[in-house]
Write a protein that binds this DNA or RNA. Sequence first.
DNA 1: CACATTTGTTAGTTCATCGCACTAACAAAC
DNA 2: GTTTGTTAGTGCGATGAACTAACAAATGTG
Lengths: 377, 377
Amino acid sequence: MTQTTVRVGKSLRPQGKVRQEDARRHHRTLLLQHLFRTGAASRADLARTSGLTRVTVSDLVGEMLADGLVEELGAPAEARVGKPPTLVGMVVDSSHVVSLDLSSVDTMQGAVMNLAGAVVDRAEVSSGGARGTDAVALAVELARTLVERSGRPVLGIGIGSPGIVDDRGTVLDAPNLGWHGTDLAGEVAAATGLPVHVANDANVAALAEHTYGGAAEGGLLVLRVGFGVGAGLILEGVLLHGHAAAAGEIGHVTAEDDGEPCACGRTGCLETLLAVPRLRARLAAADDETALLAATGARLGEVLAPIVGALNVHELVLTGPLDLLDGALRDAVTTTLRRRVMAVTSDSLTVRTSNLGDDVVLVGAAGLVLAGELGVS
Amino acid sequence: MTQTTVRVGKSLRPQGKVRQEDARRHHRTLLLQHLFRTGAASRADLARTSGLTRVTVSDLVGEMLADGLVEELGAPAEARVGKPPTLVGMVVDSSHVVSLDLSSVDTMQGAVMNLAGAVVDRAEVSSGGARGTDAVALAVELARTLVERSGRPVLGIGIGSPGIVDDRGTVLDAPNLGWHGTDLAGEVAAATGLPVHVANDANVAALAEHTYGGAAEGGLLVLRVGFGVGAGLILEGVLLHGHAAAAGEIGHVTAEDDGEPCACGRTGCLETLLAVPRLRARLAAADDETALLAATGARLGEVLAPIVGALNVHELVLTGPLDLLDGALRDAVTTTLRRRVMAVTSDSLTVRTSNLGDDVVLVGAAGLVLAGELGVS
DNA sequence: CACATTTGTTAGTTCATCGCACTAACAAAC
DNA sequence: GTTTGTTAGTGCGATGAACTAACAAATGTG
């Protein structure tokens, strides 16, 4: 939880000074970012892409070599004029990341991942309806187990939690887990002594799609359908948190006039149509399942259209149970959006399901740590 | 148009190195920002708020004194223990900004403003339906006139234009003015030799509300109703441009099923209900004007609800003709939003009209220059 | 084989900032 | 009137990061 004033890799507000130490860290990150995204490269190559001198790059790479973060990989195969370069690559197993997904209904998922975002080890606990401090204890225990099981130094712990999470990792409100103003990051950090990053599960999923899911540049909207319905937005390459950390709470926007009652006290919220338990119940009672899915998709499209139009979203990713989301529902969303949003925007719009399967949140939580600790994304 | 790699005050992507020169500029900006927002302060005060040393602050202030950007104002009235400080304040008339508002239907508005955003001089030309290069020539001429009339050095030119504008100041598409891929910034810069900043009028209006309109922190959505309908968004203190610079094109989101035909080729777009000429025509034909305004407001609320909910917008500002926007329409928007958006969000939501009157775009365009050239916002 | 080309390193320089020490100016207490 | 304590602002040397210049090593080319 030791964090410098300036967070490199996220947006830098003009609210802090830039010590030269910060600048150096930023440059280190810059190089690491390149190695992370485009693979191994020579020092000279890094110098060219970063704009720094070969001297400076050498110095920084030396530092990272000493830290075990990168390693020399020898000369590349192809022979060219001049002295052959020495490739430098990230050591994806130099340290690990522990990530938790608390958004499932009955279980808490956990994993140990390497720096490339690959799952190295897994664990899960049945939550058995635990709430409040009990639920916190379960999460802490799961994290601790995984940290111990990982043979490597752990860079940090990333957690995707349902509900509203502020930027310090406090869960302001998560009804399912009975958390209200619960300092989840603090608890886990105290128990493990490691940096902890927590964010809303939908936001985390968006980060995962952006970093690992092969999402194109441009606005990205990830809709996460589970016990509730949430949205995560990546705009201009940056994850949107929202001021009171409540961005993405799309589940309680009205989607249907005179609809069914919702837990929030109003009626016709998007969740009453789309949340997995609600939708399954409605399907069970329906004559024509496909028609119901299509109608639901159309409603969803109507809710999303203003967002897609106003923010120029280029890619919409649906995450959740594929049997519900991938067929008629997705098609209906797509056609509704195309019909309701200006051609300039909707022509270039892709609607798809996640490439990352059930691990979206785990992968994204790991990405949260990489972004926070290494500035890599 | 000489601009360093790092733009302070906007989001800093990890795509450029940070030269120490940049860091120094950033720190200068930091101090200026404080003077700009909270008025005069002593060097020691600046040191405390910025986290820099008194030495460094003295050095930077000395630089700015030499540039004529700030001036010493003597000691403050109240007497305290210790040596009385020397207040330093921005010289609001050290240089001027020329700004243009091209979003009116028949005229192009222009103004000379000081660094505090006050109008010093005005001019306007009747556009007389000019389009394409003729319209560009008119804008160039208006800018040139104002630059000449200003007795001070001009910091730059800011332009709020309708249509889609990319970040380099090229108007990609503005049907009303017949511009398609028109390099407006380039033309004006070539004619005046000054830095030019162009953005969409709604975005510019949002910037104005954020900087000068007393907007609270938190998400801000500015809806601009004129010949067309556009939206500008400030999230996490930063103006959202959208990837293909088309953010804010909310006018062509469908607001009504089976609605009236729109210029874009579809039907029921928000513009067909809300754009000033369309709305006036509908009012003229209506029996009950108030009812029509309320119905229109309700539709608008339905379109905005998903955006307000998903982005946690705290403040909605309506700009445009007040006789249309301020009464029944605004009330209907407010109640619709409160009904359709989760309480957490909508309780803290303010819906209001602009505090800046007809000058929103002019003021915002000036702000664009201040943000771009001085990093102040 | 001489030579150009590219990589990576060494040595010395520039630049922004910091810590420290200093002077200046004043209020309050005696 | 003097002393004490506090705050403001300014020199000066030190530090740390990144730069330029120069060069050795390794390799293809004519």
